[in-house]
Design a protein around this nucleic acid. Structure first.
Lengths: 216, 216, 216, 216
DNA sequence: CATGAATGAGCTTTCATTCAT
DNA sequence: TATGAATGAAAGCTCATTCAT
């Protein structure tokens, strides 16, 4: 399956600038609603109202309710990626990897609502739209893989290809986890969470080496 | 908030054995449907049909559609816990912790559908029912905390209280991850996944210590 | 294209007797509404109300609004055919042909509303349902063809195959005409209309032969 | 009810020539759409597009969607009448009557789409506009009546007043029939259809006289 | 206890029409 | 004059829930 980068959402309005503007309103309104009640319990009328225009106008900019969800997911990923952009610049040191993780976690922290929504509702996308979103997710984990790979290339780390892949996934999920398991993480603030997780990710369990040595 | 262990779901049928039986059918049917189409896209009629009885009968054993979801989530957690039961017996060695993780991952692997459903749909539970489910989740992470704590008590590991908590959460999430990110983990089978993750969890990134030493 | 005699309209109700009954109500209500405002200007809610049940119940017996139209058309043809049934019995005399025509016209007269509705709305049927209705129309013109053919076989008339076909069509259309051009036929009652038309159909224009002879 | 010949359709544009031009475009576009999908299933946007201007402009030249239908019907009748114009010149022979019929059938054949549209959609005109269209239809049947009357006056035919009226109606309907029952008339081309119908109209059924004579 | 027909609130979506530019 | 974005009433249809049998 060959995927273009975007799945165009049809609009009967022609003015591109207007589309951009209205969809901004729409996405903002929708995220807030989806966070409160989820995609399915939110009505299109509510979305229109929260966006600041009428139901008729809403449908000038989308074709189906699902389009709103797609736009929301699409936008969130783009936003996350934009914010992560400078991450890739850095070189292949462990420090830069730590900084990358910290940066990513910070971005998630700043977009908790959005991440949560996307995380919980993306599965409601149709078979048609899902691949476009998954593709973006893939690109994000790829960023972490690249970051790690550089460390390996620089001799800072020793990892197999599949370990790299898995570590990248873990980092990605632990970022999301900050959004979707807040209820279980109340005792941390984002900095503490970042420190602790980074340490666990990189060093593993403290004392483990000692224990292993002892056991030998 | 003081929570009893169960939130009773009203039934107008008196015969407890019958209730048990009917709800078994119901849960089995519902899980399969929720997996395919999600809670919101599944109709009560479909649930009744998949359960092998009429819509009228369905409503003899529940009061609202959401009850079905609650029953499903409730049951899945119970099932997981039952299967994990023997995990707690073991003592405080690193080996027993590894075994615990492996066991848990295996259970998730054997209940992928159920875990996935619960994972994706639990959020649709009303404010009323959610705590009961979260409580069960808490109990499960507690099991891992206990397991780790034992290792600490035995001097096998050196960890602070909050690190233990976080590690337990990570283990729990990585188990679920096996169910909800299968699309990104196709290259592993459950054993490989278990090995790799356990290693990362416990040892951290290979070469890290060396790098740190070198840096000093 | 091979057509079964009926295109089944799905119903979620199982009791066949009930379906029959409810659809009777539905058709009666719908005919009256379609006559007043046409198919497109009639809402499903109005149909439900005119049928004596709720919108929900209406949709227990059909799947789409168009189904109502199909049921109406289907029923009307059946009804017309039932009423025409004895027409076919008669033998091949001119008198029996006249009687057949008169009988058909009478039937149309007694079902003016229905014929009008079907006549004007049948074209709104989807490409899917139309053939089933056209097939019934064909059967009706066939009846006239048979009637005429008998006369030819008996030597009462001398007609080519395609003339027979056309005459049958004319009879059929002139019957419908009584329903759909009443506004232009106010000066006649059904008996006068029948007499005049039969005469024109069979004898042609009075004086024509004379004129032709004269012209020779 | 006293009817002026035209029912003015309001336009906020003053330039008469422009109105004429735009409405030409509009009617042409609308006929094509109405033929495909009928009046009700055609949207004003589609009409505007097919007419080559915007929805806003469309509404500069009409007041309601129904106006389009009225304009279409109105135009078609005018067109038919214009094309039939020379028919009336001819004198009172049977031959001229035949020629008139043939001419009318030919006109219908050349305007099949338009005739069909008008035929099927005219009923959707409001109680307000309908009379204006029916009046035009009346004028057309009057033309045939005149043609026949001349034959009677010339002694070529012997017919009562109401027979003349009915024959005119029949001719008119059989012309339309060529448009709206093409599916049942596939075996004829327009010339064959004309010949056969003219013969049936004028001579009646072949062999009938003989049969009657024999029966006497 | 089991059934399934009945209900109607509420959903998504369309589209004729308006009006500021 | 021409445009097309905005509007919202109203349409078709669904489905959780009830209740008479």
């Amino acid at each position: 399956m060959r995927l273009e980068n975007k799945r165009e959402v049809q609009s009967s309005v022609k003015d591109e600038r207007l589309i951009e503007m209205r969809r901004d309103q729409m996405i903002k309104g929708a995220v807030s609603l989806f966070k409160q009640k989820g995609f399915h319990r939110t009505t299109t009328r509510e979305i229109a109202k929260a966006s600041g225009f009428s139901i008729g106008t809403l449908y000038e900019y989308i074709r189906t309710k699902e389009d709103v969800l797609y736009l929301v997911c699409d936008r969130i990923y783009d936003e996350v990626r934009v914010r992560l952009h400078d991450m890739e610049i850095d070189g292949g040191t462990l420090q830069s990897l730590s900084r990358g993780i910290a940066h990513y976690f910070k971005v998630v922290d700043g977009m908790q609502d959005e991440v949560l929504v996307m995380y919980q509702e993306a599965k409601s996308l149709s078979k048609d739209a899902l691949p476009y979103v998954l593709k973006k997710e893939l690109e994000m984990t790829k960023m972490f893989e690249t970051l790690i790979q550089k460390c390996v290339d620089e001799g800072e780390l020793v990892m197999e290809q599949d370990e790299i892949h898995l570590l990248a996934q873990n980092i990605f999920v632990q970022g999301q986890m900050w959004a979707f398991r807040r209820w279980a993480l109340r005792e941390y603030n984002i900095d503490q969470y970042t420190d602790r997780q980074t340490e666990l990710l990189l060093k593993g369990v403290r004392g483990y080496q000692a224990a292993v040595n002892k056991g030998e």
